[in-house]
Simulated scan of single mutants.
Amino acid sequence: MSHLKSWTQEDIDYLEAHFGKCHVSKIANHLERTEIAVIGKARRLGLTMLTAGGYITLHELSKFLEVNNRTIKRWFEAGLKYRQKAILSKSYYFIDVGEFWSWAKNHKQLIDFSRMERGVLIPEPSWLDEAYKNSQKAAIKRHHVIWRPVEDQFLLSSLKKGDAYETIASALERSVRAVKARYRKLVSEGVAERKRYRLPWTQIEIDMLMDMDKQRLPDKEIAEELGREIHDIRYRRKRLREKGIHNFRKRKSS
């Protein structure tokens, strides 16, 4: 393989279509280049959200499974393995696709497979088809279940206590989307008052906030990565500063 081989548009198109979806060695063999050359070119093109070797970022995993970032972080606490890597001066949280499927096999009750984008987290396990069908049936069943007054009361009281939507949804055996929609409906009907409920922070979230602050990422990007509101990010930073845990201060220009 030649280190001086010029990149054609056809080469770039192939790289953009396959980088992160298959191993670097396969791409390198097809393009007749070294693996280092492939990775270097991918980074220069900004292809950093999916990495070679079967890893996916926390944000991308949440996107493909249609859950928020907080859900993924709670899976970390439930045993899902992750790695933290620095790419182009930024820090990302990565999950090995194979390890995700191994973990998911034993935690099917936590995942709504019917909402995931198929054919992305490859190779998909043989048991996924059945799990996908079961999730579809459960979703259809939940869609037609009428909310009872006792469930409404449980929803509102749980929010006041600071319980996360995922926790409430699990207790009610409904989807997070359904729980949020029900709360909005109760607010619109005047049954509940619109409030900003502060959900409890996990240690992983706090560590991620402090790490991203060190990188001087904007609050908007931090909020997106953590799946929280900007005001929640600023409030938590203030509380950490008051406790002497985190001395970082945002520059006025940011």
Rank of each mutant, 00 (worst) to 15 (best):
A17K: 10
N106H: 10
E173W: 15
C22P: 00
A28P: 05
V191D: 03
E66G: 01
I39G: 01
W7V: 10
S91T: 14
C22T: 15
Y197W: 11
S6E: 14
R44F: 14
K41H: 11
S114K: 12
I230Y: 09
G98W: 02
D207R: 15
R228H: 04
K108V: 02
E225C: 09
A86R: 15
K26G: 00
G79P: 05
S158L: 04
A28S: 13
F248W: 13
R184I: 02
D211A: 08
Y92I: 11
S170K: 14
I95C: 03
A178L: 09
W127Y: 14
R177S: 06
F248N: 12
L209W: 03
S25C: 08
L88Q: 15
E10S: 13
W201L: 08
Q203T: 11
T48W: 01
E205N: 10
S91L: 08
V67S: 10
D112I: 09
K108F: 00
A169R: 10
I111W: 07
L240D: 07
A131F: 09
R249W: 11
L226C: 10
G227D: 12
K252M: 04
M210E: 13
T71E: 12
G98K: 15
E60S: 06
W101F: 05
A192P: 04
E99Q: 14
Q9Y: 03
Y132V: 07
E124F: 09
S188F: 12
N247P: 01
W147Q: 02
S126I: 09
F64L: 15
E193L: 13
K220Q: 07
L4W: 00
D13K: 12
S188P: 02
K108I: 01
K185R: 08
E193F: 10
E242Y: 07
I87A: 03
E77I: 06
E117P: 00
N134T: 03
A131C: 07
A138V: 07
K81C: 04
W101T: 08
I87H: 09
W147I: 01
K141F: 12
D11E: 12
L47V: 03
I222L: 07
E225A: 15
K21P: 00
F64V: 15
P218F: 08
M116D: 01
E124M: 04
R74T: 05
V187W: 10
S170T: 12
Q203D: 10
L65C: 06
T51N: 07
G190V: 04
R142A: 13
L226H: 03
E224I: 09
I245Y: 14
Y92W: 03
V145P: 00
A104H: 07
A104D: 03
P123G: 01
F94R: 06
K105C: 03
I12W: 00
I12D: 00
A138I: 07
I95W: 05
R216C: 14
G54E: 05
K85Y: 00
H23P: 03
M210W: 02
L217K: 09
F248R: 11
